[in-house]
Amino acid sequence: MSSAQLREHGGGAAGLTALTLVRVIGRQSGWADVWRAELDALRRYDDPDTAEQALLVDPGDGW
């Protein structure tokens, strides 16, 4: 299941799982545009815990 599919599924557990995927693969990819976009989407996620945790992710320089 992709992070986008998890976001579409909805709910806190799905959102946090999607965020974990985005963190890991985002870092591995050097924060390619697709993973930056997923992180942005999770920052606007309906679950406040997921959105807050996504805001705390720092993709580093070049963001």
Rank of each mutant, 00 (worst) to 15 (best):
Thr20Lys: 15
Val34Thr: 07
Gly12Ala: 14
Ala37Ser: 11
Gly15Trp: 08
Glu8Thr: 14
Leu21Pro: 00
Gly30Cys: 07
Pro59Gln: 04
Tyr45Glu: 11
Leu55Pro: 00
Leu42Tyr: 14
Ala32Leu: 07
Gly12Arg: 15
Gln28Pro: 02
Leu55Thr: 06
Val22Lys: 14
Ala41Tyr: 11
Trp35Asp: 13
Ala13Ile: 07
Leu55His: 08
Glu52Leu: 08
Ala4Ser: 12
Leu16Asp: 06
Glu38Trp: 06
Arg36Gln: 13
Ala13Pro: 04
Val57Asp: 01
Ser29Ile: 07
Gly15Asn: 13
Asp46Ser: 12
Ala14Ser: 13
Trp63Ala: 00
Leu39Cys: 04
Asp58Gly: 00
Asp33Gln: 14
Tyr45Asp: 14
Ala4Thr: 14
Leu42Ala: 02
Leu55Asp: 08
Pro59Tyr: 04
Asp47Arg: 07
Ala13Val: 07
Ala18Ile: 13
Asp47Pro: 01
Val57Lys: 00
Val24Leu: 10
Ala4Gly: 06
Arg43Ile: 03
Leu16Lys: 15
Trp31Lys: 08
Leu16Asn: 12
Ser3Phe: 15
Gly10Gln: 05
Thr50Lys: 04
Met1Trp: 05
Gln5Asn: 13
Thr20Trp: 09
Thr17Asp: 11
Ala18Ser: 12
Leu21Ser: 11
Pro48Asp: 08
Pro48Lys: 14
Ala54Thr: 03
Leu16Ile: 04
Gly10Asn: 09
Ala14Lys: 05
Val34Ala: 10
Ser29Lys: 11
Asp47Tyr: 01
Gly15Cys: 10
Gln28Trp: 11
Gly11Glu: 09
Trp35Ser: 11
Val24Ser: 09
Asp47Lys: 09
Ala37Val: 07
Pro59Lys: 04
Gln53Trp: 03
Gly12Gln: 15
Leu21Phe: 05
Tyr45Asn: 12
Trp35Ile: 03
Leu55Met: 11
Tyr45Trp: 09
Leu6Tyr: 03
Ala41Thr: 10
Asp46Gly: 12
Ala4Leu: 10
Asp49Gly: 04
Leu16Arg: 15
Leu6Lys: 13
Ala51Glu: 07
Gly26Phe: 09
Gly26Ile: 05
Tyr45Met: 13
Gly62Val: 06
Tyr45Gly: 07
Leu21Tyr: 06
Ser3Arg: 11
Glu52Asp: 09
Asp49Ala: 09
Arg7Tyr: 09
Gly10Leu: 09
